[in-house]
């Protein structure tokens, strides 16, 4: 029983980390550009596939870094050519736009790499079980946790201590003032969008090594990442971080007793938070627009 609980807790933590990477990207884009990126899960899948395509040439380790950069660039192009044109329009347009993009990206992956799942091979070093009794503690899982921790720490350090990061945080609070201070917010938003896509693609490479690649691998992560943001609270990246881990663990722990409930439980959590604390766990009062 203890093994089972530990097994599910580990799964939950891993799942939560994927939610976190996804949700942080969605949250960055939402906070600064006020756009909900439906296509985020498809950028995740694209990240995995690009790593699959690149790793025969440059090896896994380099592909782990280069694939997210390539997909981030794709994100940048998408933002410059399409997304930025709907910033000034009512919400419905950006939703429809990213919704359409998600269809196109998913079909693109399907056309290029096929409907059937593909394995993303990982170096043997990472595949060894670390413990004999707890079979599920593979080296890859420790590696995965490590990469996510480093990535999240780097993101927070970047936002906290660099000039561009400070501008992004300031823009989240009051974009008009940031613009009035002479900062090119168009460029800032483009960079921020690419940064969010980078995180999604990184999650895609990591997920590919864990569960393999398929064209709609990111779909199941998009909605939970929205929930993570709602639970965490508007405008708070720390909240998003907490929200992601909480729903990941909650859904895995629920799966011990009630396997069909693993998805339902995160929605129940959302409703509870909405009723008891409408602004979310760490949301700022008045930051709900």
């Amino acid at each position: 029983m203890l093994t089972l609980v530990l097994f599910n807790l580990t799964n939950g933590l891993i799942l939560g980390l994927f939610y976190v990477l996804m949700a942080l990207g969605v949250s960055l884009i939402l906070n600064l550009s006020n756009v909900i990126n439906f296509a985020h899960g498809n950028f995740l899948a694209l990240g995995g596939y690009v790593a699959y395509a690149l790793s025969p040439y440059m090896g896994y380790w380099l592909a782990l870094l280069v694939a997210p950069l390539v997909v981030g660039l794709v994100g940048l192009i998408v933002e410059r050519t399409m997304i930025r044109r709907v910033y000034a329009r009512p919400h419905v347009y950006s939703l429809l736009l990213t919704f359409g993009l998600s269809f196109i990206l998913q079909d693109f992956c399907r056309m290029v790499w096929g409907v059937n799942g593909l394995p993303l091979s990982i170096p043997n070093v990472l595949n060894q079980p670390v413990s004999n009794t707890l079979f599920f503690l593979t080296g890859y899982r420790f590696f995965l946790v490590g990469v996510v921790v480093v990535a999240v720490a780097a993101l927070f350090a970047f936002l906290g201590f660099t000039r561009v990061g400070t501008r992004i945080r300031a823009g989240t609070l009051d974009l008009d003032t940031v613009s009035a201070l002479g900062i090119n917010i168009g460029l800032l938003r483009s960079f921020n969008f690419a940064l969010g896509i980078f995180l999604a693609a990184l999650a895609g490479v990591l997920a590919g090594g864990q569960i393999g690649l398929n064209p709609n691998m990111g779909d199941d992560l998009v909605l939970p990442s929205f929930i993570a943001i709602i639970i965490g609270g508007a405008g708070s990246l720390v909240g998003t971080l907490v929200g992601g881990i909480v729903i990941g663990i909650a859904s895995a722990v629920t799966a011990i007793w009630w396997s069909a409930g693993s998805e339902v439980v995160i929605y129940i959590l959302m409703v509870v938070v909405l009723v008891l604390r409408p602004r979310g766990l760490m949301g700022e009062e008045g930051m709900m627009t």
């Binding site: 399409m82 429809l96 736009l97 919704f99 359409g100 993009l101 998600s102 269809f103 196109i104 998913q106 079909d107 693109f108 399907r110 056309m111």
Partner: peptide, 11 residues
């Protein structure tokens, strides 16, 4: 490839 076409219609 109906998904692409529907997506293109949206965009």
């Amino acid at each position: 490839n109906w998904m692409s076409w529907i997506g293109i219609i949206f965009v």
